[in-house]
């Protein structure tokens, strides 16, 4: 009996317990991998701490007046980012309204058997290519194509409905509307991708049951599929909003860089990210501190929105996995 198993035990070539050296390598490599994973946590913490630390002098200097002030005056040392906060939130909200609706529509288009599988893949690729285009290229395109395209429509809206605050000024060139539209185009793939995911998670039998009861296609979508996928779609919208808040370059090129607060869709404005992009390169010591404070404000807003979106996404996954 011993002889039978002897050959397998002695050689160490094909199989056998690991040698001491292999144990050591194993331990070493596993600790390296652990350290790397830990480094991610350290990195995020370091980012938060560093930006907070750099903003401290400015927080001490300007306090909460920074968030309510409306001028950015380097020579007098008065800094306020209320117009920028307004611009950030307003442009992102507009982008969410447009990009969100389109994103969900595309997700429905892709997952609810409107087109065959091949076409759906092609269309999916188109949307992914849209996501791949860099922000600066969208900015350039916006100046050359979008603004001239919007001018006639904006003029008509302003002339006929000028009393309405949203159309209160004319579109001179760069402004809130072109910026929000480009932003919508940029977050559309994000919203679409996460919504597609959400729709895919719905168990097939739910759809079958709805059709079995005689609903039309859209009744099934609106009354059954959408409510079931609602938390996933909500996550998509929140994460899309988070992406819009942080977008920099296309906005810096298209929003007009004017530090004012206006409801009009066509007036120029400014956002936190474009303020940072425009003023940082040539800023002196005092201005850098104020900009760090602005960076902290942006960080706080985007961090909160992203964490909220991810939490909703976790909840969705747990909801569906639990059901199964």
């Amino acid at each position: 009996m011993e002889k039978l198993f002897q050959a397998a035990n002695t050689s160490g070539s094909i199989s056998g317990p690991p040698s001491a050296r292999e144990y050591f390598n194993d331990r070493l490599f596993r600790s390296i991998a652990l350290t790397s994973a830990f480094l991610i946590i350290v990195l995020v913490a370091y980012i938060l701490w560093e930006i907070g630390r750099e903003a401290m002098p400015a927080i001490g200097e300007y306090g909460l007046g920074f968030v309510t002030g409306t001028t950015w005056n380097v020579s007098k040392g008065e800094f306020g980012v209320l117009p920028e906060i307004w611009g950030t939130l307003y442009s992102s909200l507009l982008a969410l309204l447009i990009g969100g609706v389109f994103g969900i529509a595309i997700a429905i288009f892709l997952t609810q058997d409107f087109i065959n599988h091949r076409l759906a893949t092609v269309f999916r690729t188109v949307i992914e290519m849209l996501a791949a285009i860099p922000s600066v290229v969208f900015g350039l395109w916006g100046i050359y194509v979008l603004i001239p395209l919007l001018k006639p429509g904006a003029e008509w809206l302003h002339d006929s409905l000028g009393w309405f605050p949203l159309f209160g000024t004319n579109l001179s060139g760069p402004g809130m509307a072109p910026a929000a539209l480009v932003l919508a185009i940029m977050i559309l793939p994000t919203v679409a991708a996460i919504s597609v995911d959400a729709f895919r998670r719905i168990p097939y039998k739910v759809k079958e049951a709805a059709y079995g009861m005689g609903t039309t296609r859209w009744e099934a979508i609106l009354k059954v599929m959408l409510p079931t996928a609602s938390s996933g779609v909500l996550a998509a919208l929140v994460l899309g909003f988070g992406r819009a808040l942080g977008e920099t370059m296309a906005l810096a090129m298209l929003i007009g860089n004017a530090n004012q607060i206006s409801l009009s869709l066509f007036s120029p404005a400014n956002t936190l990210a474009s303020l940072l992009a425009s003023n940082f390169p040539e800023a002196g010591r005092i201005e850098v501190q104020a900009l760090m404070y602005a960076a902290l404000v942006l960080l706080a807003i985007t961090f909160l929105v992203n964490v909220a979106g991810l939490a909703v996404q976790q909840y969705t996954i747990r909801k569906f996995e639990g059901k199964k």
Partner: peptide, 20 residues
């Protein structure tokens, strides 16, 4: 606040070119 702020002489020229 209503003024558009840009960089450099060339930036001003460019912005005037594209803004009605």
């Amino acid at each position: 606040g209503s003024a558009m702020e840009v960089q450099g002489n060339e930036g001003v020229a460019r912005r005037v070119q594209i803004t009605d």
